[in-house]
Amino acid sequence: MKTMRKLFLSLLFVAIAFPAFALNPDEVLKDPVLENRARELSKEIRCVVCQNQSIDDSDAELARDLRIVVRERLVEGDSDDQVIEFLVTRYGDFVLLRPPFQASTYFLWLSPVFILFLGIFAIITFFKRKADSINSLADPLSAEEEKRLKALLGSEESK
């Protein structure tokens, strides 16, 4: 009975545990539409201190300041693209967690597609070759071979 209660309690604690948000309550905008846009944008923006987190996830002080800047720009009426541009002119493309599709990143974006096609090509040639080798076994004998076979069999029979 005691163990059951313990189990129940620990499950209860697991159930009520929430993920911790980096976002502080005082940063949240009153307008839920703008706040939603700010959250979505923040997820796309790299925290330049911690580098592999978005500013939405990061607890770094600079990330907090960037979140506030993003919200300020939105309140002033900037579009999402304008906010992104504001940050890119300051921090470069690095600030974007999703690298833009441009000359310097063609290799990055297209190499998976290239490798996929390479794989498809490899599979096709593999099966084609296998089919060819099976077909070559099933190939009927040529007229010449037939003749030779008959001759051999014939000589065997006549003995």
């Binding site: 002080e61 600079l62 300041d65 960037l66 506030i68 800047v69 300051r90």
Partner: peptide
Amino acid sequence: ADSRVAIDFGVTG
């Protein structure tokens, strides 16, 4: 104090 100029300079640390 609030990183405004640091952000304009693209400061990361």
